[in-house]
Design a protein around this nucleic acid. Structure first.
Lengths: 231, 231
DNA sequence: GGGCATTGTAACGGAGTTGTTACGGCTTCC
DNA sequence: GGAAGCCGTAACAACTCCGTTACAATGCCC
């Protein structure tokens, strides 16, 4: 996703440069702060999409900043801790941090974690207040119940729509068969895999281009289904 | 962490005093028992955060107490063994002890081990809430069930995923074969080492670079497996 | 009442998964 | 040095799971 804004807080110039360089190379817009106070000043003016926060800071430390942020906002926070400082991880996660990375870390690990956190946040947004859903050529409008693929409208039966709706609301998350059966059909339907199987098949017939190799509704053998993933 | 409660079981008053003094000085609350029976009586009333258990006890010995505890609870257990008694170490770990200390030991070693075990437990608590896991080039996302090694996605079968998931949730802790079999396969699978062996092998084929010298899933001969080295 | 859409049930074949067994290397213990 | 135990590896067979298809039951609208 292009241009998402990330605030990096670290007093070690070496790490600040490392993180900034890699994030910018990956296409993010990066802001920097060297102290907790500086970070709060920036945050008061402008809320980024993600904060990367070193625990060890002079003055107001990472925990303090994390707590202050959580008083007013739910933006995702990744903490940077010294490797082996397990109690820092525990404390950070209790304060509401979304993830942590142990120093030293590789650029690959950094980007993987950032992407993972942002992906979850984007999906959660879609699930919540959004009234429409888009994934590739698939488009849903939750208000009008209209579903289109490559611009062409697709007629879905009520059950098919409920299934797709639940999948879309939890896009990117693995949904077990029993979970789907309970949420789409009702509590008495746990274990009734046949209905789910057939309904998924019917849905795919209408949505997928090549239903042999489903693009949207992906099977996880022995587990359940998932709508879309990254990419 | 302040005020965690530790039960010490030893029939030698000299050690009992030594351990109690050092633990209390470090800020722990300490309970004492001189026999296995006494320990079980106390445990029936109140579950501490950690048990330190001498192997050599009159009557019901340390192994017996350890086994009885494990029937009902997963609280961490540290065994005290005579130095050089390697078979005691293996036996203890097999019974589900979390660590062992060879007598005689220094106060420093005692406190280091206690802290290490408690740290792992606290981490495991948090690991439950955690939605991702990283160790070296291995990355897991628990929501999407995606596993990547060096950025490349790895396809795991349901059983392989459950095994890796349990190993990751208890990273750094020795997991006995029976524990793995019970938690990943089910209660009826204790003693069925073959399945575990083969599944571990298949997992390594997919994860490890050089499966001859495993980097992630390490074997502890006669005991079980561990994901990631002890700190 | 007849036609149509929708939904649940049953059956089958194939792909992938899983448990079993066997064998050989390695270590450990007498 | 031989026996026993443990582990990794390989191949095999049974099985599970899923997609697919056909069919029956239900409800709805004209």
């Amino acid at each position: 996703m292009p241009g998402e804004h990330i605030l990096v807080v670290d007093d070690e110039p070496r790490y600040l440069r490392l993180v900034r360089f890699n994030l910018e190379a990956a296409g993010y817009r990066v802001g920097c702060a060297a102290t907790g106070e500086e970070a709060l000043t920036i945050l008061a003016k402008q809320i980024p999409d993600l904060v990367i926060l070193d625990v060890m800071l002079p003055g107001l430390d990472g925990f303090g900043v994390c707590a202050r942020i959580r008083e007013v906002s739910m933006i995702p926070i990744i903490m940077l801790t010294a490797r082996g400082a397990e109690e820092d991880k525990v404390k950070g996660l209790r304060l509401g941090a979304d993830d942590y990375i142990a120093k030293p870390f590789s650029a690959q690990e950094l980007l993987a974690r950032v992407e993972a956190v942002l992906r979850r946040v984007r999906l959660a947004e879609v699930a919540g207040r959004q009234t429409s859903f888009t994934q590739g050529d698939l488009q849903m409008d939750f208000l009008t119940r209209r579903v289109t693929v490559r611009g062409k409208e697709v007629r879905l039966s009520p059950t098919e729509y409920r299934l797709l709706h639940y999948l879309a609301a939890n896009a990117g998350k693995v949904l077990t068969q029993d979970d789907l059966l309970e949420k789409v059909w009702g509590q008495g339907y746990r274990g009734e895999q046949e209905v789910l199987r057939v309904t998924v098949w019917r849905l795919r017939q209408k949505l997928e281009d090549d239903s042999q190799h489903p693009q949207y509704i992906v099977t996880l053998s022995g587990v359940g289904y998932i709508l879309g993933g990254p990419t």
